[in-house]
Lab assay of single mutants.
Amino acid sequence: TLATPAVRRLAMENNIKLSEVVGSGKDGRILKEDILNYLEKQTG
């Protein structure tokens, strides 16, 4: 899974598996926005 260290840390802090997040960046890269959108969906 393609993600920057900052995105990986954000995911780890929120107990998110990067494999569950759909990346919207180039080549499927997971962006910070993708993590935040995933969190919004989870908290509903």
Rank of each mutant, 00 (worst) to 15 (best):
K32R: 14
E20R: 08
E33Q: 10
P5C: 09
Y38V: 13
E40I: 07
G25C: 04
I16A: 03
G23I: 00
S19W: 05
N15M: 06
S19Q: 10
L10Q: 04
L18G: 03
N37W: 08
L39W: 06
L36C: 03
I30Q: 02
G23N: 11
R9H: 05
A3R: 02
K41A: 15
R29D: 08
P5F: 10
K41D: 11
L2H: 12
T4M: 02
M12I: 04
A6D: 12
E20Y: 05
N15W: 01
T4L: 01
I30D: 02
N37Q: 15
T4Y: 05
L10D: 00
E20P: 00
N15L: 03
T4S: 14
I16Q: 02
T43D: 15
L10R: 03
Y38I: 11
T4A: 05
K26C: 07
L31D: 05
D34L: 00
I30Y: 10
K17W: 03
L18S: 02
N37G: 13
Y38N: 08
I30W: 00
Y38G: 08
T1L: 02
R8V: 12
L36R: 11
P5Y: 07
K41G: 14
P5A: 14
G44M: 09
G28A: 03
K41V: 12
G23K: 01
K26M: 09
Y38A: 14
V21Q: 02
T1D: 13
L36E: 14
I35V: 15
I35D: 03
E40R: 14
E20T: 10
I35Y: 05
G25S: 04
E40K: 15
E40M: 10
R8T: 10
Q42M: 10
N15A: 07
D27I: 00
T1C: 06
D27L: 05
Y38T: 11
Y38Q: 13
E33G: 10
K17D: 14
R9K: 13
T43Y: 04
G28W: 00
K32G: 09
L2M: 11
D34N: 09
D27M: 04
K41C: 12
G44Q: 15
D34C: 00
K32H: 01
E40T: 12
K41H: 12
P5D: 15
G44S: 13
L31A: 05
I16E: 03
E20M: 09
Y38K: 15
A3N: 04
I30A: 02
G25D: 03
L10I: 08
S19Y: 06
K17C: 07
L36F: 05
I16K: 03
R29I: 09
R9Q: 14
G28F: 01
E33M: 09
N15E: 10
G25I: 00
K41W: 07
G23P: 11
M12C: 03
K41Q: 13
G23A: 08
L36A: 11
I30V: 13
L2S: 06
K17V: 09
N37H: 10
K26N: 12
V7H: 03
T1Y: 13
V7F: 01
K41T: 12
T43L: 08
L31F: 05
I35M: 06
L36W: 09
V7W: 00
E20I: 02
D27T: 04
S24N: 06
Q42P: 13
A3Q: 04
A3M: 09
G25N: 02
G25L: 00
L31H: 05
G25Y: 00
L31W: 01
L10K: 06
G28K: 04
L36V: 13
L10H: 00
R9S: 07
L39T: 09
I16V: 12
T43K: 15
E40V: 09
K26P: 12
L39D: 07
I16R: 01
I16W: 00
R9N: 09
G28R: 03
P5S: 09
K26R: 13
N37E: 12
K32A: 15
K17N: 13
G28T: 02
S24I: 01
A6E: 12
D34W: 00
K32L: 10
V21K: 02
N15V: 01
G23S: 06
V7C: 01
S24G: 05
Q42R: 15
I30F: 01
L31G: 06
